[in-house]
């Protein structure tokens, strides 16, 4: 499993397709993991528990997620919960991932 994080619009998907020779619509690419987590929270699903259950099936996946952690603590309680929960999910994902990359201005840096 590969985890790719980075700020919004940094070229994460483009990096994934080039690095792993995949098409943009390859079903192994999970785009916008940060939005999946927000949706789960809005539907009262525990994203961390869901992730733990899903981990075994994520072996060949490339997970792409926005970094949403460098701003001021959000005023909105849902956004606050989102930020915290996504952070925990990413730490868990990162531990299980074979490779972790951060993309900055279109350039990838391997963190793991």
């Amino acid at each position: 499993m590969v985890l790719i994080i980075g700020g919004a619009y940094q070229g994460k998907l483009c990096f994934a397709t080039e690095q792993f020779h995949m098409a943009e619509n390859d079903p192994r690419i999970w785009r916008g993991y940060h939005l999946s987590v927000l949706e789960q929270l809005q539907n009262s699903v525990d994203p961390l528990e869901d992730l733990r259950n899903q981990i075994p099936s994520l072996k060949d996946r490339v997970i792409i997620c926005d970094d949403i952690f460098c701003g001021v603590v959000p005023e909105d309680p849902t956004m606050r919960l989102w930020r915290e929960t996504l952070g925990r999910c990413l730490v868990a994902l990162s531990q299980k991932a074979d490779e972790v990359y951060r993309v900055f201005c279109g350039l990838g840096m391997r963190l793991k």
Binding site: G6, G7, A8, Y9, Q10, D66, D67, I68, F69, C70, G71, V72, P74, M79, R80, W82, R83, F104
Partner: peptide, 8 residues
């Protein structure tokens, strides 16, 4: 400037 990493 890097302005792409907040939860908003």
């Amino acid at each position: 400037d890097f302005i792409y990493a907040d939860a908003l």
